[in-house]
């Protein structure tokens, strides 16, 4: 008999509507502790709404969400405060009440790890898209949060930066493990990074399928076992074949 799986968040028949417009309907799945769960679905199906519910920014209008601990969300672009410098943005992520020396150490650690030390005094608009996402990641990870929510975090980046950022995310999570829910429209990204993929249908979105991906190195390469089949399955589920 296998050991029981620890659950980070549990959705039971969760639905959400903006007034008369139903966005999500009957979502029923678990987010396992320590996994990277990707959510894919058609554009406008409610993926970001799902993330807002998981982050506690919206309350489900139907069903129940059980979630323990705090979460941090990383947005596609524009989640950084433009009036603060790189170091100040990262420092804002350190929990309130942390002693100043400890706060400074955490910020310094992240700036060194993410090769942003020499940009500490820059403002977000002075950075490239990839550097901004590293700052966002730092602000999210300097706190001991349980759940990291990624809302299409790399979609505003060019292809090369996107590939580099996926590698950096994997490396970072290996050093600072978190439960991650990644919302993306990019099937390749989902297959490269995730342990499991939840496929959502058109609005009002419900779960069409939960796909387990084979274990192995991350990000997965196109020739890795199971990758081509998984991409094919996801394309089929989304009606793109």
């Amino acid at each position: 008999m296998s050991a029981p799986v620890a659950i980070a968040a549990s959705l039971r028949e969760v639905g959400f509507a903006y007034g008369a417009v139903k966005v999500l309907a009957g979502l029923d799945f678990d987010v396992r502790k320590g996994e990277l769960l990707a959510c894919v679905g058609p554009s406008g199906c409610g993926k970001s709404t799902l993330l807002a519910i998981l982050g506690g920014h919206l309350a489900p209008t139907q069903g129940e969400l059980e979630r323990a601990g705090a979460s941090r969300t990383i947005y596609q672009d524009g989640g950084l405060y433009p009036w603060l410098t790189v170091a100040e943005n990262v420092a804002l992520g350190v929990p309130r009440g942390t002693p100043a020396a400890e706060r400074a150490r955490k910020v310094e650690d992240w700036l060194t790890t993410s090769r942003l030390s020499e940009f500490r005094g820059y403002h977000p608009h002075q950075l490239s898209g990839g550097m901004r996402q590293r700052v966002e990641l730092g602000r999210a990870l300097v706190a001991e949060t349980d759940l990291l929510l990624l809302d299409e975090p790399f979609s505003a980046l060019d292809y090369q930066t996107r590939v580099r950022m996926r590698r950096e995310l994997v490396t970072t999570l290996a050093a600072r493990p978190r439960t991650v829910v990644l919302v993306t429209h990019d099937i390749e990204e989902a297959v490269q990074l995730a342990d499991r993929v939840v496929v959502l249908g058109a609005r009002p979105a419900s779960v069409r399928r939960v796909l387990d991906l084979p274990p192995g190195r991350r990000p997965r390469g196109p020739a890795d076992p199971g990758v081509a089949a998984a991409e094919e399955t996801l394309l089929e589920e989304l009606g793109l074949t």
Binding site: A52, G55, G56, H57, A70, S71, R72, T73, Y75, G78, G79, Y81, W83, L84, L92, G93, P95, R96, R139
Partner: peptide, 25 residues
Amino acid sequence: KVYYRVAEDLGLRGDEILFEVTLPA
């Protein structure tokens, strides 16, 4: 709106949101 969502994540409340988010923004 994303600035306020980030503020919620960071645990900012009431006056802190006013002085650390809205006014600087």
